[in-house]
Nucleic acid binder design. Structure first.
Lengths: 200, 200
DNA sequence: GTCAATTTGTGAAATCGTTCACTATGTTGC
DNA sequence: GCAACATAGTGAACGATTTCACAAATTGAC
């Protein structure tokens, strides 16, 4: 009826184990996580749901871990991933800078959060807030020279990390991954209609 | 040199737009997000990186949105997705219950966080802490009858939401998605080696 | 023109997660 | 036996993000 975590933990080195990973290959030639499946198998879940659960979970986990590795890499220059993405976004607007709301959309977070991120970046001297001459409610975020330098260094680091993570996939596989993710995303968005739609 | 967000925003209904989604189909027949690509195109990113960025971002976004839709669905019975996953995990151990550390592994969070989740669930009367007779340091988490009922209701809701999200994919596509995600996950784990490895 | 509705940014408080430090207990080597 | 070390749970402090409420400015309907 139930499988204790210990049971699954002892399955660390199963028969189909791939060297260098904790995953195995199923009969159809696809990777799966035997440890997770062993735990899941005990929970009286309809067979047709198992694959769906596995797929979504793997995707979530891969995304989280990928972003975590970016975070880790960027810590070298003392910016968080989110701060780096913000710098990159602002940099894209050049000397003109941009209001904060477009940044929020790009990051896929609330405007309030951008205020907080800006506070941190400003404290580090990487961005500056200047009045928007065309709209007195708004402020313009602009990179300082230090911010531009940081964005450049960050870009090198981020791209190296990205390459490290994605070199495991061929271009065709990346295309496929993007395609399937977007299909699922479109379906999920209809189920959670009020969510912010990030661009970065 | 730079594309303002406004420019991209006006591209809401491009030529290759799919009805019912905000995505388009590229020449190879794969979905992509034209809005995101338009913004990205301005940022002087090496061509070979663009696809990698898109793929990872789409995956992250899809995962987040999928989980958000579960959260949304489960709010009907006043549990968070994480609380539901915790209930499900504990339920898997039956009447014997389990210590908290295995739960932390299953959820992929720190033990400290499980304490907090348990606090919330206990306050709702869904779980109970009892002393572990075999280890006086440990406590055993067990579902109350109310917890069991909640887990059951939650399972129905969660599975309905999961079906809604994943019905967009064929079984073969789910297999493929899981496969590619795990490949990427394995690569990302090597880049961020200290991360907790979740099982649920 | 004017007034209502919307938009922009931010303070305050809440949520969810983390790390660090600590106590109490178990385990192991000798 | 016992010192050294590892493990289980939790308090305290912190960080990222959200929601709600608000003031100031803009926009739009008439």
């Amino acid at each position: 009826m139930h499988v204790l975590a210990k049971d699954a933990a002892t399955a660390d080195t199963g028969p189909g184990m791939i060297p260098g990973t904790r995953f195995e290959v199923d009969p159809s030639g696809h990777l799966y996580d035997s440890k997770f499946r062993a735990i899941l198998a005990a929970k009286s879940i309809p067979a047709e749901m198992l694959l769906s659960i596995e797929a979504v979970r793997c995707m979530v986990l891969a995304g989280k871990t990928a972003y975590a590795s970016f975070e880790e890499a960027l810590s070298e220059i003392e910016v968080t991933h989110q701060q780096f993405r913000t710098l990159l976004c602002i940099d894209g607007y050049g000397a003109a800078g941009t209001q904060l709301h477009p940044i929020a959309q790009w990051l896929g977070v609330t405007p309030r959060n951008v205020t907080a991120i800006m506070d941190a970046l400003e404290a580090q001297g990487l961005v500056e807030r200047v009045a928007d001459p065309t709209d007195r409610r708004a402020i313009i975020a602009r990179l300082t020279p230090a911010g531009r330098a940081k964005a450049q260094k960050g870009t090198r680091i981020h791209q190296a990390a990205l390459r490290r993570v994605t070199s495991a996939l061929t271009d065709d596989e990346k295309l496929q991954l993007r395609h399937l993710s977007l299909k699922l995303l479109a379906a999920a968005e209809q189920a959670a209609p009020d969510r912010r739609k990030a661009n970065g």
